[in-house]
């Protein structure tokens, strides 16, 4: 039987701060829904279809569509501010 040695775990603690949970939304009827498009192919077309569904079937009042410059770069502050100002809910895309 081999001796016992000690070795380090190579991981690191997560220093992130947990954000407060989003406030609940009481349905979508009459609300403004924003989309932040991650600029990946076809996300814009899916947004168009999804927006149409939300308006026609669920009574969403209006949709706001914004597009990032690139998938690999965060949305700029002006887009975030604009969406926060206008919208009750944001749907954002991640991944292919």
């Amino acid at each position: 039987m081999s001796a016992i040695i000690h070795v380090f775990e190579p991981t690191a603690p997560y220093g992130r701060k947990e954000m407060a949970a989003c406030r609940a939304l009481d349905g979508l009827r009459g609300k403004v829904v924003g989309f932040i498009d991650n600029a990946k192919p076809n996300f814009n077309h899916m947004v168009d279809d999804l927006a149409e569904l939300l308006v026609s079937r669920y009574g969403v009042k209006k949709t706001v569509k914004c597009t990032k410059r690139s998938p690999g770069i965060p949305a700029p502050e002006d887009i975030l501010a604009d969406v926060a100002r206008q919208c009750d809910l944001v749907i954002t895309g991640s991944g292919d």
Binding site: C22, A24, A84, C87, D88, L89, V90, I91, S94, D96
Partner: peptide, 8 residues
């Protein structure tokens, strides 16, 4: 602001 994250 409520957010929904969408991905494949």
């Amino acid at each position: 602001m409520p957010v929904v994250l969408l991905c494949t």
